[in-house]
Design a protein around this nucleic acid. Structure first.
Lengths: 217, 217
DNA sequence: AATAATTTTTAGACAAATCTAAAAATTTGT
DNA sequence: ACAAATTTTTAGATTTGTCTAAAAATTATT
């Protein structure tokens, strides 16, 4: 599988989480920052390689083989992210782009040895689950901060947007994985949320609240 | 710089150690396992990028910029090899191919943090020096076992051939970096060498002796 | 020094991955 | 339901890195 093919497989995998039907050509083009015509070409190639099902005008859908391949790439991505943060002392906003490259390194033995070295982590630096060596992904129980009721609280367990801009903003707010957040009030006007964090009260926008995952008990 | 361009730069670098003049098209083709015509094309591209000097029929020669680039790739390659052996417990015959992929990962910050994590190693698992962050390579003092006089001894500090076949053969002979070897006799008929290693005497072929580096005092 | 052998370069083709522009199919709006 | 809008596909071109075959230059031989 080429680098580009792997990127497409990953994109289709991520897009099909929300989607029941096939993932649309345009959606893939947007995700991959390319043109619809390029996507059509690539989907055909991937269909020949049996990693996607493809019928004209019906979008793309990963085969079982395709899903397993995607899980493997995601496993590699997240294990490398964990390595970069825990062993090399990168911060959580710096690791995505480097892991995008490292995830394409081929050796299976490498990734199993890395997993052992890291002591089999289950969660990456952004709170996302690391698939096991069989490609199984443990679903993490989590709720968007934006949909938590006034008065309720939870622990930060993940982010939806893991762009470095957003992560650096969270750093500035002192919001990190493991922090406890209590929803003090929700403003109906703009859906902003007043929260308590470390005994201080801060107001966060609807957009921000919509990108933070909490675990409630 | 693309992956392929980086591979050519590295090949030219390694070939120009023995060579005073430009490295010939054919020599590069052999090293890269490709055709001379492909090499000519690539050399022209590299010349446009100012990493090699090129005049028709005169072979290729790295510019200062090209040499610095090569040193950087080699630094990455050897640091990753050290990581694979020391942290992930790979054996010395398994790491070359994986490092060939890892050496192309772009981030400068990654390689500096890796260097720190590994505590600034100077020598890779095959005894080759790791260039520092400025691209300077410390020359290691070493002599081929094949050219050591009868009765003299030395410490194994490197190998010339680092193919996994050769390295596994050395494992079988219990020859590893740091071992002391004494040359007991040299057979004029086939240039084989009788050595003492850990109180046992073994006979090694001229070819083997020609791929082991010793440090003599 | 002329010819033969070898090396290197050029010319033209090809596959992968992309693009633009236009055609075809599907979906939407009234 | 049918025209308009949108989405998707096709057709043809481009770039990178490769190839084969043939031409040009260099090196070796007698």
């Amino acid at each position: 599988m080429t680098l580009s093919e792997e990127d497409y497989i990953k994109a289709i995998y991520h897009l099909s989480k929300d989607e029941q039907k096939g993932v649309s050509t345009n959606a893939i083009a947007a995700q991959m920052d390319t043109k619809a015509s390029s996507v059509t070409d690539m989907i055909k190639r991937l269909a020949e390689k049996k990693v996607v099902h493809y019928k004209k005008y019906q979008g793309a859908r990963l085969t079982e083989e395709g899903k397993a391949y995607a899980a493997k790439i995601i496993r590699k991505h997240r294990l490398w992210e964990f390595f970069l943060v825990e062993k090399l002392n990168f911060s959580w906003d710096e690791v995505h782009d480097i892991a995008e490259e490292l995830e394409h390194i081929k050796s299976d033995k490498l990734i199993e040895k890395l997993d052992t070295f890291l002591d089999y982590p289950r969660i990456d630096p952004h709170g996302d689950p690391i698939p096991d060596s069989n490609g199984n992904i443990k679903k993490v129980e989590k709720t968007l901060l934006s949909s938590i009721k006034k008065g309720k609280k939870g622990i930060v367990v993940g982010v939806k947007d893991s762009s470095s801009e957003f992560l650096r903003y969270l750093d500035k707010l002192n919001i990190a994985l493991g922090e406890e957040i209590t929803v003090l009030n929700k403003e109906p006007f703009d859906n902003s949320v007043l929260i308590k964090l470390n005994d201080s009260e801060i107001n966060i926008s609807a957009m921000t609240a919509n990108n933070i995952f909490l675990k409630t008990n």
